[in-house]
Structures are given as C-alpha cells and as structure tokens.
Design a protein around this nucleic acid. Structure first.
Lengths: 341, 341
DNA sequence: CTGAAAGCGCTTACAG
DNA sequence: CTGAAAGCGCTTACAG
C-alpha cells in the first residue's frame, strides 16, 4: 500500500513537505509541489483518511438520519444530500431511523457519538435534548430538515403557510365543505410537519368564517398512498356528509384519495376537488393540484449549511438563513375546480 | 475526550490490558476485565474507530452503491441492508450512482479505493472490470445484488424464470395476444435484469408455440409508473392491435399500465389482463397480480454474505449459496382473468 | 520553503 | 495473565 513516505522518497523530500504539497496547507515551492504531485500520481497514492482523521479530528463524513427511504419526499431529500456531499468530497453515512427505541439510542450513543462523522443532518425527525447533547458535546453541528431539534438550525418550508395556501385555493373556488386528511398524531404533535399543516388548515378555515369542526372533517392517516386511499374511502363513503373538496397533507395521501374517489364513482374534480402538498413525481400524471416543494434542492441547501458550520472554505458565504422558509409554490392542475352551485 | 489511557489508569492496568479487556481479544483475568469495563463505563469511553482502523485495517463500514433511492425495489433493498448492517455493528456509506461517468469514476477511485470501507454491496449496477479490480486489489469483497460484477457473488431472483412464470400465468388463462412492457435497453443488454425478463417472456411465448414477434408486442420504457403509463397509452391506443394481456417488467410499470387502461376505457381485467414483477407495496391496493420478490430480505442476505466474506464470527455458517436464486412467488389478484372467447 | 520530531489513539507481537 | 514498546499513516507546531 502506497504511503506518504513512498511519495516523499520518490520526490526527494520529507514526509512533512509531501504532506504540505498534497494537502495545499502550508507553503511549498511551486517546483517542489509539482514533483510531489507527480510522484503521488505515479504510484497512485491516496492518503489514508483514518490516519488523517486521527490527527486532524475531521473525518470528511456526514451522518444522515432519516426515517424513510422509500417515501417520495425523503428519497428525494436523500438523493439531494448525497449528491451535494459527494461534490464537497464528503461521504454520507446513512442511519435509517424511525421511532424512538433501543435501536435509535444505540445509534446515537454508539455510532454517532464516536468520532466518525463531522456533522449530522436529521431529516424529518424530532431530536430530543439528550440526543442532541451527545452530538453537541463533541462539537458536531446538527442541521434539521423538516423535523426539529432544540437549538439547531431548522430548514423547512412554512408548513402552516403551505396548508393555508392549499386551503385558500379551495376557498377561492367557492368550496365551503372542505375536509382535511392529516398525518398521524397531527392533533397532538403541534410542532410536527403534519401538526403544522393541520394548524394552517384550521386557521384558513377560521379566517374564512367557516367552522372548522362542523363544516370540515379532519381525519388522520398514514402519510402514504394506501393510507390516503383507505382514509378517503371512509371519509367519502357516507354520501350525506360528503365534502366538496379535500386538502390532503401530502401528495401521496392525495393520490390515494383520488383513487378512492374513483373507486366510489365520485368524479374528480366534478364532484370533489383535491389538493395536496409536495410536488410528487406522479402529481403531473394524475393532474393533481398541489403546493410544490423541492426536496432535492432542500437536501443540497442542508449540505451547504453544514459545510458552512464546518467552516469549509468554498462554502457559499451567501445569505443562507435557516430561519427563512424554503421555497414552495401552488401548482394548479385538473384535480381542483369551482364548487358546484 | 476520554482515551483508553484514562480507562487504563482508572482501572490500574496498562493500555494493552485495557484494550484486550474491552475488545475481548486475548485473555484477561475475569476480575481485571470487570474493573476495566467499569472504568470505561464510568467515563463513557468509546474507542476511536479511526485509531483502531489504522492498526487493524478494518473500518466496520460497508459501502453501498445504488442507482436509485426512490424506486420501490431499491428503497426496500437499501432499508434491508441498513437494518442488517446496523445490527452487525457496521456503518453504511451510501453512494447513489447511476450512469457511468466522471462522478462514478471519482467514487471508485477516490472514495471506494481508499481504506474507508471493508466491503462493497452493489445494488442493481453492472460493475465493469476496472471498477472491480480497484476494489479487489485492496482486498475488499464485493457482493452484487440484482446487478452484475465479474467474479463476484451475485444475489438475484431468477429473472428469466420470473418472466416465464408471469407469462405462463397469462398463457394458462388462455391469452395468446400478449404484450410485454420491457425496461430500457432490454433487447441490447442481455445480462441486465430487464434483458433477462425479456428473454424469459420470449422463451415462454416460443414454448407455447406463439410467435413472439407477430403475436406479441414488446415495448421498452422507463421502469417507473409514469413510464409504464406513457408506454401503455401508446401500446393500447391502437384498438386494432390491442393485446388481451400485458406482462410488465415491474410493478411500477404495471401500475402505470393499469392507469393508462382506465384512462382509455379499457377494463382490467375484463378487456385486458395485467401482470407485473416485484410485489410493490401498492400492488395489493390495486389488485395487481404479480411475481413477488422480497427486496428487504434480499438486502439482509447480501449483508450476511458480506459478513461471511469478511470472516465475521457470528455470521451464519448456513447454506447461503449465492448461486441459488432468491425466492419469488406468483400472487394472483384481480388484474388477471381468462381470455375472452 | 523545508525537515526532524512528536503525537493523534489505538492494537499487537514480544517478553515475562 | 499482564506490561513496555513499537507502529499503523498521517499532520503540525517548531526550528532553521
């Protein structure tokens, strides 16, 4: 295995100089640098990251905690993070962690708290104080995307605002009987994504002078297509109380609801308007009106923020402000129309 | 930062003994071990993996190369791998790599070839000789799942067999005009998953005495739901040549085809039977007949194989044979029925 | 600009 | 069973 000593010998310099020449830190004569680089290339030298980490304390590795890989939003975020990290010369260590539990504890105590990652990006998970403390105690920056973590920068769209936007779209179309398919625990966990969206829905309804309890039905469901399908089947099954419009907490839920409507012979948008949130890759195909967000780009932004927290040179010094909500946009398609008179 | 020297001092032994007591390698008096463990626990000592790697050459880290994260099969495999690796005490470094190109080269040369991973699991990618050589040259085992790599163990279902199974299901139902929605390049890359499935389709048709050219249409498409939708729209659009049954190379393609049929007013299964491959999480909801496979479990098996190649004790010594195809199973639902007379 | 030396935090022969 | 010492492969003050 080629070591830096070999490079040094070949170039006729000391290991110290070879190291400086290769890393770019410290000053080296132009001619010397050239010789060292040539020597390194000739034997295919690649510095051992372990040895380097041992002395610098930096691993060039970022841990990503994510509850799902196979849901559209999360998959896109993960791909975005991966791409950006690779570009920055960092590795990505994946921790696919959902619920609290012994496994999650083990990851925090054993994997994350060791010196193997320089920073952590937590996607869609709510970190608790003790989890964060272990990381911070070792000087590892934590960036939260979509989830929450005390004291850490939080990157997210304005979820309540997105819900308001979606709901107002329906209101402007003249709908008054509007139902909301919310995520699980939306009512209980106020700070969660699903909680924020529920809150936005309620406030938009209230602002329109519509009673959010009597006039609107809220039903919680797994935020997946089958979840939306099942929930919508229940919700729409009873013709008497059927809403004229449906705001789904995510596009996957909305798509499931579209399929349920179809199964029940309810025309979309003729008999029922449906709007979601996400900008899912299937949304266009299904003609789903939605509030788009850009998870791949969000992943990239999270990496950019991490690089800045790590003091990486080359990290944009721009106005990346984690308190500014991420971009979103209402895209109107054929799943929503005016309320029947 | 607690170091092993602190543990040793606290326990009143040498660093060597502390190391032996903690790692379980070499013999240590029971009483000594207890003291060392207590000391370690009391200051929350966790050995630096960098320092350990530097001397042992082992990183306890496995690299996973995967072309997509957001397609059902790949996402499931990734989750399965992650879970198994975590259980084995290994980290997972993710490389989301699709096409050949400068980025892929960089990953192989720069990331993978360094000493940061002990082994590589390649999911659904075809590794070429030079890529493999770099890894093997450094003694890193490579396990291939779904894709291919010269000389490496290959884990996969019998893709041609799965296609035969699906096609014969349609044949037994009396269908003769059967079309196949194949993956891209299926005709060209014979060893690829889509190539094998196309081959299986053709051989089943030939065995049934059906001309695979005249009687059956093969159309290549992106293996996604929108891909299947668009391809099926084209295929089914022309009433004159409409097949009575469709074998889709994946469930996502099959689901797209179901939606296209519906859009065209073609009843499934009344006017058109559809069968896929995968066992996608939406298959049940859509009543899709499919040849199920079990990607999460496949990921676990890949990890098991890697552990064995790494000589991990505790790795099952069972009859894990990479030449035996992985399990699959035809699941008949409501998307297929007998051919109209 | 360059080199000799120390040191990052472990593990592993080698003695005893 | 235990300890002293060497060494894994780098980087970084410290001198010059």
């Amino acid at each position: 295995m080629a070591a830096i000593g070999d490079v040094a010998r070949l170039a006729g310099v000391s290991k110290a100089t070879a190291s400086r020449a290769l890393s770019g830190r410290g000053s080296v004569a132009v001619e010397t640098r050239r010789r060292v680089e040539a020597a390194a290339a000739s034997i295919g030298f690649i510095a051992s990251p372990d040895a380097a980490s041992l002395v610098t304390g930096r691993t060039k590795n970022v841990g990503v905690i994510i509850p799902f890989v196979n849901r559209w939003f999360f998959g896109e975020v993960l791909e975005g993070i991966e791409r950006a990290l690779l570009t920055a010369g960092y590795d990505l260590t994946l921790y696919n962690l959902a619920d609290r539990g012994p496994e999650r504890e083990r990851v925090f105590d054993f994997f994350l708290a060791r010196k193997r990652v320089d920073a952590v990006i937590a996607v869609g998970v709510d970190l608790v104080e003790t989890e964060l403390a272990g990381l911070e105690g070792r000087g590892k920056p934590v960036v939260s995307l979509g989830g929450s973590a005390p004291r850490s920068p939080r990157l997210a769209i304005d979820d309540a605002g997105a819900a308001v936007l979606a709901t107002e779209h329906l209101l402007h179309l003249g709908h008054t009987r509007i139902a909301h398919l919310a995520g699980r625990e939306a009512d209980r966990s106020v700070e969660s994504v699903q909680g924020r969206r529920l809150r936005g829905f309620r406030s938009a309804m209230a602002d329109a002078g519509l009673d959010p309890i009597a006039g609107a039905t809220v039903r919680e469901t797994e935020m997946t297509l089958p979840g939306g399908y099942a929930a919508a089947l229940q919700l729409l099954g009873h013709p008497a109380h059927r809403p004229s419009a449906l705001f789904a907490a995510s596009d996957e839920v909305a798509l499931g609801a579209m399929l349920a409507a179809e199964r029940l012979g309810i025309a979309v948008p003729g008999d029922l308007s449906i709007v979601g949130i996400d900008g899912h890759e299937y949304a266009e195909m299904f003609g789903l009106t939605t509030v788009e967000q850009y998870p791949g780009e969000q992943g990239r932004v999270a990496v950019e923020l991490v690089m800045r927290l790590l003091g990486e040179t080359g990290a944009a010094e721009g106005a990346l402000d984690s308190s500014t909500p991420l971009p979103m946009r209402l895209v109107v398609r054929s799943s929503t129309t005016t309320a029947a008179r």
